[in-house]
Write a protein that binds this DNA or RNA. Structure first.
Lengths: 154, 154
DNA sequence: AGAGTTAATACGAATTTCGTAATGTTCAAG
DNA sequence: CTTGAACATTACGAAATTCGTATTAACTCT
């Protein structure tokens, strides 16, 4: 169990047991918060793709259709359909900008922004449930570890 | 910021800032591991439902079609279609048990079990990446906190 | 101007999900 | 023993989604 040099920095591989433990725990973890997600989705009956697109548009007002498609990794035609649905539901608006009239500028409507807020509230609710499951002195640890993993280079 | 009594136990609500921090970190967290999931899915081109069904069957050999449908929250007809696809790909087998011939007993084939193993390996790989992002003395903390959240009652 | 590129959309094919109806099986009551 | 209800599964068809191809409109560079 001696530390070994890797790429010029001390790097110890996680043990097989650690990986096993975290894998099993994370399965239960995701399972627990998947049901909450499914329950929240039933309210608005918004397809997963549409919800992601709406979120992106609300965070990038005036963005183009292609931007959303690239970010979410779907075909432009698929995104066109998704935008159609969202426009039909009055959650986003298509506009032709004067400076580039072949593009469309997407913006979220008031209703769309409200749906995004509800969506985010559901997400926050899940995160609050995570924190409440811990003792107060453990909560900062969870935040710090999550940030560290999320922002790691590789 | 005084502790307050709730349901007979000490219970301090997470602060709004803590919830905010964890929410933002968790967004980056899930985004980072979503791409890995998508890359792994491209290998086998297995639909999400089929992958979940295959996993359930491999963990519950001889189970019925209705069991899988109930566990995954889909209509029995949808599960029948999913089983059709998996049978066509030779990943699971339908068998009519002698003692109850109106049911079918589902079991994973050797190929199906192999695919499950690869699937699990991808999952483990993601968990290993999480652990590698942390210092060795932090890894036990992550495991412990994840288990605590996953197994909390409410 | 004119060719080539870019952004978005219309259309059609393939696939998936799910509701309704049908098939075959089991169980219980008469 | 028969008959009828309940059950597990499947067949079929409708609705919706994704995506590839072709098309339209606009921009850019020579």
């Amino acid at each position: 169990m001696a530390p070994q040099k890797c790429f010029g920095r001390d790097m110890i591989e996680p043990t097989a047991e650690q990986v096993e433990q975290l894998t099993r725990a994370f399965e239960r973890f995701t399972r627990r918060f998947k049901v909450a997600e499914a329950a929240a989705a039933a309210d608005n009956a918004l397809i997963a793709l549409d919800a992601q697109a709406l979120l992106f548009v609300s965070e990038h007002p005036g963005c183009g259709l292609g931007d959303v498609a690239r970010d979410l990794g779907v075909a432009p035609t698929t995104m066109s359909s998704a935008v159609d649905r969202l426009v039909r539901k009055a959650m986003i608006e298509r506009r032709r900008p004067e400076d580039n009239r072949r593009a469309v500028a997407l913006t979220a409507t008031a209703k769309g922004r409200q749906v995004v807020e509800e969506q985010k509230a559901g997400y926050q609710k899940a995160c609050r449930a995570m924190l409440r499951s811990l003792d107060p002195d453990e909560r900062g640890d969870l935040i710090r570890l999550t940030e560290k993993i999320a922002d790691a280079e590789t």
